[in-house]
Design a protein around this nucleic acid. Structure first.
Lengths: 338, 338
DNA sequence: ATAACAATTGACAGCGCTGTCATTTAATAA
DNA sequence: TTATTAAATGACAGCGCTGTCAATTGTTAT
């Protein structure tokens, strides 16, 4: 059984190929009865448009790309699967493009890639989603973009945004720690270049303020999103005069490092020190003890983003769309009563 | 600057588009002087063939796919990057296809996908690479395949194979344990459905035999590639009459689980018990203590596989190609002198 | 030098679809 | 009813390339 083409469908339905094309592209000016005839034929032949032909013939393409600078394997895999699921539903193709966001010609590289492969749109996660000039450059090419980023409001109206409310989530993690009776709570940040880190720090501070607690700047460590940073951060915190009884690590990797350092220092978790992470990555379940963290439904977020993006490429709809997700507190074994 | 097409190149070089096509496809019957003229024009215009047009016009396509059943996020990311790097060099496109190898219609799903997207070839990793009927079904479609799998010889000549010599690597890990003075070495397997697990077990047994040591079947636990399995396996082993003083875990996840269990049981690592993993996944560096393991250059392997695959799709070259990689012992802190 | 052949090159159709624009049909107004 | 306009449909070119096959050129043997 050879693959059916638009001609086969047209013949079977008794219409012209152009009408079949119209139906496949959800164009409006097709009579309902005609549309149904075509849909029956499409189902009969299990016809699916040829992507190469569509891309070649049309002005708009049916390929989208996910451009990312691998922040974390689990995250990337989740994102890919979510995007892929949206693509499958809509007959789009996904090209993945891992790359180094700090390479100095990165913008041109992506621009070329986009032109070269006639990409209709990009899904962007941090750090790309937080590089305004980069985003501007892409949207100027009339290539659609959907950004997933940290914050509660979109920074501009260049593209739809999916905002991750790290602020609110960090607030509830910190509140959880406070509820457990902790008075001195340390914070290990993930690097000022990450909006998520800044947002999480703000949430932490907000929670303290909500509880009439003072922010002790000595308890806030500038780190980065890595295991090593967690190790150093925890050591540094435990060397303070006023030692924290709880540490809020900006992500699970940092938390794992902090856990590691605590063990090296002979500190019992959570008896002597509570440690919380963020992101609910798989290894937060594989540390000992298991990490209290914040969960964000990345696969779902990615599918949302891709659907939005595909919507953008189909019709030049509203760029001001904004959705918001707030990661949810997941209490496990690394945090406990003071 | 609009993208150059084959016509622009032909005009600039003063030849027909067909000749340009010949040069781009490395066909033989082009005079050297002509070839150079074309290459100059190509460089001048930085021409790159349009993939959609190639896929549409030609019988062979320029898309390959990576079909996998996510065994491990780090592994998948490495594979993707390696494959992508080969694709970039040769102007191929990569489609990723994560899926469930145990779904009962999986073969048909992939067959459809391959037909649908006119895929030229597939890169296959376990478990797909170890499903002979599946591979046969694909190669019968005249779709090229390259398999990455465990073993030292290819199981058939359906496709080129990249063999990972888990046997030899497991042998050297076990020998390392023996060299440290261990007499009772436990083994936690990864599941009989994984060739790698079987091979690693064989290597383990071989090492014992090489050292005139008896295989104690009670010290061999049937597990699976998961953290939980490591936890259970280690508990089971430590409940034996003759307790092991070292455990060879079939992969790093299992080893992490074993480490976790040892901690729960109050067993000091490596003082009272040595634990070795396999795969050198990033979190083998994030356990405490850091894991002794075996390293395999996955990115390199993937690039090799994709190059081989692309070679196959270009010319119907030898299917009996076989390369071999042997993972290398990485000694860290989880193993020690008895 | 010329025939006979092989090596190069090019003309042209067509892959499966979409864009443009002309044509047909239905819907509304007069 | 018929004229007028809008909605629905179709004819056809062409996207950028490759496959086929014919035409041209170069090469060798006579």
């Amino acid at each position: 059984m050879i693959k059916a083409t638009i001609n086969d469908v047209a013949k079977l339905a008794g219409v012209s190929i152009k009408t079949v094309s119209r139906v496949m592209n959800n164009e409006i000016s097709v009579r309902q009865t005609t549309r149904e005839k075509v849909q029956v034929a499409v189902a009969e032949l299990s016809y699916q448009p040829n992507l190469a032909a569509r891309n070649l013939a049309g002005t708009k393409s049916f390929s989208i790309a996910y451009v990312y600078d691998n922040p974390n394997a689990y995250y990337v895999i989740d994102m890919q699967e979510g995007i892929l699921s949206a693509c499958k539903k809509q007959g789009y193709e996904l090209l993945i493009h891992p790359c180094n966001s700090k390479a100095d010609n990165i913008t041109e590289e992506i621009v070329n890639m986009v032109k070269q492969s006639r990409i209709a749109g990009l899904v962007l996660t941090p750090p790309f989603s937080e590089m305004p000039e980069f985003v501007k450059r892409i949207t100027d090419l009339d290539v659609k973009v959907v950004r997933i980023m940290s914050g509660d409001v979109a920074p501009d109206n260049l593209s739809p945004c999916i905002m991750i409310n790290d602020h609110a989530a960090a607030l509830s993690i910190t509140q959880h720690l406070i509820d457990l009776g902790h008075k001195n709570i340390g914070f290990i940040a993930g690097g000022a270049e990450h909006k998520s880190s800044i947002e999480r720090l703000q949430g932490y501070k907000q929670a303290l303020s909500n509880n009439q607690m003072m922010v002790n700047e000595n308890l806030i460590i500038e780190g980065e999103y890595s295991f090593e940073s967690g190790v150093h951060g925890a050591k540094q915190l435990m060397a303070e005069d006023i030692k924290p009884t709880a540490i809020f690590s900006c992500n699970d990797e940092i938390a794992a490092g902090a856990l590691f350092a605590a063990r090296l220092m002979g500190i019992a978790i959570p008896e002597q020190l509570s440690i919380a992470g963020f992101e609910n990555s798989p290894f937060s379940r594989q540390t000992w003890p298991k990490l209290t963290t914040a969960h964000q439904p990345n696969r779902k977020i990615a599918e949302d983003a891709a659907s939005l993006l595909i919507g953008q490429t189909r019709n030049q709809s509203n760029k001001n769309i904004m959705t918001q997700y707030t990661p949810e507190l997941v209490i496990r074994d690394s945090t406990g009563q003071l």
